[in-house]
Amino acid sequence: MHDPTTSDALPTPEQMRNYFAAGKSAQKARRLREASRAIITGNIAAFICLVETVLVVQHAGWTNSADGSGDAGRMLMVNVVICGFIAWFFLSLRWLKRQRSRSSVYVLDQYEAQRVPARRVRAVAMLVFAIMVLGTGVAFWTIDVNRIPQWSIIAFLSVGPFAVVSYFVCRCVIFRFWEDLLFAAAVALAYLPFPFQAWHLAPLCLATFPMVIVGTICLHFRWVRWQRSALLENVEAAGEEVRS
């Protein structure tokens, strides 16, 4: 009998099927893990959309009154929205933590549990990269913002949205959640009026927030639905486990 545990011969079709079945189960676990973090993903999208909206709103002149001077009331409204988002961010993370800790289907990320040193190095590298990008931006601004060509400012400001859109598209390819495409579309839509200087499209920015909220809710309910079905299936089994 062919035994690939000890021979160099190619595995049988059945063993190949087993290997692919294991891959499929691993993918399922990965999708569930990501669905359980819907709030975090939604917050990332919402944060980027907020920054872009503020940028577009400022340039579209929404914060100015009719005579061109700054309107304190509108500025206050923008600031309240920003502070409200920050408050919501911390509250939602707290809620997420509580919800996950109560869940009887308990999943931790591999890296959270394992604390892989390679990831730490990558995190430091990303931090250094972010500081370098910010430093370059500040340096250019300090030199003279008027001398910098318009296209280079747009290119510099486009780095963030482009990276986030790529991140969500990659996630969609890996995890196959349509919600990720919605987040990518929301981030792109929020930034679109800025590079094209199409200020009449500025109201589109506001439409991105409902998009992000819908995406987050749908992603979160994937997790909730799965968790409920798994629990209902295993209610009797859980009782047996306690008795044993």
């Binding site: 087993n18 399922k28 931790l108 798994a230 299936e233 859980a238």
Partner: peptide, 22 residues
Amino acid sequence: LVIVSVLNECGAASFNFLLGTT
């Protein structure tokens, strides 16, 4: 192989989670 592949994706998994995924 299925169990270990699933556990490799999660730091920790409950029995019920493994039942559902495997």
